[in-house]
């Protein structure tokens, strides 16, 4: 059989962005261009590879975001996905629980055998969505996959644990979250970037896939971590420098007692 794959895609800032608290009160970096969450990108690469290997028939991208994500979604299409669905939240503010609910409700309206996504998004670092979506859909989650194999209807993943590698399998439908060692995402070629412009992106209104239930938790505020102080270089030969270091640690910084 040939699988229908849905890849979850979140737009994030690049990892090298210089984060500050913007006028909106939220963290951001106006000068950085957003990217596909790198972990989601591993998922897309894996899906496209499965399609190229003849094990998948179509790859659909699914996002909960705004129309500001369209260019990023096109980049996923340029990697080789066939189409995309954007659940447009507009100016609504929703949390991971609601994102997962919207994703799960939309997935139920779509045909899918395998859902691929990142194990977490690099901006929040939370990793809630894969588990929440799996729970809502009542399907198995193969979490933090370092390797994915598909044989017919069976998906096997390898996960790197503490000092050992765990092999886990499940029958489709299944959700697999990608670890960073899963693959090396391709650079989209010029012809594929052009082809991506013609691929369909459907927009779904948030209200169609999210019930009116209020948020059960609120983000109170964002603040930047304290700045690191300047580096102090201690001069002198090894012996003298070591004595000075002990003096600094014990008497000045009072880190060692």
């Amino acid at each position: 059989m040939s699988l229908k794959i849905v890849c979850l895609l979140k737009q994030t800032l690049p990892t090298e962005a210089k984060i500050s608290i913007l006028d909106t009160g939220k963290p951001g970096d106006a000068r950085s261009k957003p990217i596909i969450n790198p972990y989601d990108e591993f998922g897309i690469e894996e899906a496209v590879k499965l399609k190229e290997a003849g094990k998948a028939s179509e790859v659909t991208l699914l996002s909960v975001g705004t129309d500001k994500w369209l260019e990023t979604i096109r980049r996923g299409l340029a990697m080789g996905a066939d189409q995309a669905v954007l659940i447009d939240v507009g100016s609504e503010e929703i949390d991971q629980s609601q994102v997962a609910e919207a994703l799960a409700n939309q997935l139920q309206k779509m045909e899918y055998d395998l859902v691929l996504c990142g194990k977490l998004a690099v901006d929040t670092g939370l990793g809630e969505v894969p588990g929440r979506v799996a729970a809502r859909l009542g399907i198995p989650l193969l979490h933090v996959a370092a390797k994915v194999d598909v044989e017919g209807n069976k998906v096997t993943v390898e996960r790197v644990a503490d000092g050992n590698i765990v092999h886990v399998e499940a029958e489709c439908p299944v959700i697999v979250s990608a670890d960073k060692s899963l693959n090396k995402p391709r650079f989209a070629s010029l012809p594929n970037i052009m082809k991506a412009k013609k691929k369909p992106i459907d927009t779904v209104a948030l209200a169609d896939v999210l019930s009116g239930a209020a948020q059960t938790r609120r983000t109170v505020k964002y603040e930047l971590p304290p700045e690191r102080g300047p580096v102090r270089m201690l001069e002198g030969e090894n012996d003298a420098a070591a004595r000075k270091l002990v003096d600094v640690l014990v008497n000045e910084e009072k880190i060692v007692h």
Binding site: P14, E16, R31, S32, K33, E71, R74, R75, A78, F187, A188, L190, I193, M194, K197
Partner: peptide, 22 residues
């Protein structure tokens, strides 16, 4: 390297995307 060129000639979306890819 994330330094963007300050003023740049007008570019189409295609041009911008292919530049980013390269």
């Amino acid at each position: 390297m994330s330094i963007e060129q300050a003023p740049a000639p007008e570019q189409s979306v295609d041009e911008r995307q292919l530049r980013e890819m390269v």
